[in-house]
């Protein structure tokens, strides 16, 4: 399949990237090549095969609904933020 400029813009939006024109051009070529390679699955017949989403042999491991002790408290986590004010994470205007 052919990856268009529009496809790249759409994927950049889904990925939350602000890409330069040069980056878009090289990514378009790279993605074209990668998708070309992974498309070889077209020739494989998987009818009647169940998908595998995980290889861990257990599921639904229950534990009591209690908060486990955590190493990092609110302050330690807030201190990681690039910008902070009044004990809250600061961000630029939303709209």
């Amino acid at each position: 399949m052919n990856i268009t400029e529009k496809d790249i813009d759409h994927l950049a939006e889904l990925s939350n990237f602000s890409l330069s024109e040069a980056e878009k051009t090289s990514l378009r070529q790279d993605l074209q090549n990668i998708i070309g390679y992974i498309s070889q699955l077209d020739e494989l017949d998987v009818s009647g095969v169940e998908p595998t989403y995980q290889v861990f042999e257990m599921e639904n491991i229950w534990r009591e609904d209690k908060i486990l002790p955590q190493e990092a408290d609110r302050e330690a986590l807030l201190n990681l933020a690039p910008a902070m004010t009044d004990n809250q994470i600061k961000v630029p205007k939303v709209l």
Binding site: D7, I8, H10, L11, A12, L14, S15, F17, L19, E23, L27, D30, L31, I34, I35, I38, L41, D42, L44, V46, V49, E50, P51, T52, Y53
Partner: peptide
């Protein structure tokens, strides 16, 4: 960036069945 964009491609509507779901079936094989 390539991997994030490829991931969003194979998961996006229209391509999910042809790529992601098919790959998970091939994984079973």
């Amino acid at each position: 960036k390539r991997r994030i964009m490829i991931g969003n491609f194979v998961l996006s509507s229209g391509f999910y069945d042809a790529y992601y779901l098919k790959a998970q079936k091939a994984r079973t094989l």
